[in-house]
Design a protein around this nucleic acid. Sequence first.
DNA 1: TTCTCGTTACTAGCATTGCTAGCGAAACGG
DNA 2: CCGTTTCGCTAGCAATGCTAGTAACGAGAA
Lengths: 199, 199
Amino acid sequence: MSIQDRRERERARREKLIITAARELAEAEGWEAVTTRRLAERVEYSQPVLYSHFKGKDAIMTAVALEGFADLAAELRAARTAAPDATEALARISAAYVAFAERRPALYDAMFSQRVDLPFATPEAPAALHAGFDELAAAVGPHADGADPDLLTEAFWAALHGLVTLMRGGRLPRGQHERRLALLIACFTRGPAGSGHSL
Amino acid sequence: MSIQDRRERERARREKLIITAARELAEAEGWEAVTTRRLAERVEYSQPVLYSHFKGKDAIMTAVALEGFADLAAELRAARTAAPDATEALARISAAYVAFAERRPALYDAMFSQRVDLPFATPEAPAALHAGFDELAAAVGPHADGADPDLLTEAFWAALHGLVTLMRGGRLPRGQHERRLALLIACFTRGPAGSGHSL
DNA sequence: TTCTCGTTACTAGCATTGCTAGCGAAACGG
DNA sequence: CCGTTTCGCTAGCAATGCTAGTAACGAGAA
């Protein structure tokens, strides 16, 4: 069985190579530059090899997105756990989220702006997805103040996502970003139901 | 000059026809089904005619998006002006925004999820864009409570946008949408700086 | 009326895309 | 050492956005 094992190992290695190459190419020149031919050339295999690993180009992007969710979760965790208190935690995790999206726009696109068939809001969702959500939830939860923490996390996540995508598309002026983000956080840090904390 | 006039009129009419056909085709089958060939067939002209009106496919999508912004502004206005008070106005305009995006996903994509070269956050932005923003601002402003109203409007718009796009992409469970939206509004209706209104 | 000329829309084609069929070689099992 | 099976490649398909070159139409002059 050792031969089969080696083959599977090599195969897995090659699959990883494809995913990495796709991500790097996308981050360097955008997804529209990621064609199956260029990708194949980059991994030094022929085009059809890609299709023995992935069903199609979309599947490759999905795989890249999955890696991205893991990265994002890790960065969010680092930002959150480095904060001294709950208020600072929300501020830092928000900044980390925005920074991730700004620093790796192509990756963020694969994760969020792509019609990708991953189970998201279900228990079957990949672990990296849950990890990312849990990080946000851990930062948002302390400010829930009676409201449903998960629901509030979803709303906050959506707000961050909207901020990032609109800014990236030029729909929001970049200059005011810091103030806008602070304002958004201020809206959430007092909880949705009245007895507010102070700023 | 009347002949030239007629020609220009016919030309404008045809341009409108192209835009409408593109929108309808996109709304019926999605943008990936909108190819220049199918579009040309639909307007009963040959392919190159499209390029005598628009620089390329992207320009056609931009034109569709512009129409969309006008539509959205109108619907937002209707929702806002029908509300009895400021709190209700924000609730209704939010619902209208979400409803628009849900009812016309392809149009919404052209407006927001496309790399389109329109000036957005500048005075040169098309009137329809300003109109839409102004509607939101008129609904959000009364709840600013000391904060910069434009900035708060931008943040709220971003939140709505994030909610809509994440839900559409399956990233947020659809079942909780109403509660999530209400929660988001609750976060904004007390203004970002303390002396909160009641729910 | 007839000729000329500019406009206009079409036919045909290019390069590139994602994807697949079919072959040839290499490697494994006996 | 041979038969079989796996595997990756060459070549090609249909469809894409876009463009070059051409034929036809209509307006104005002779």
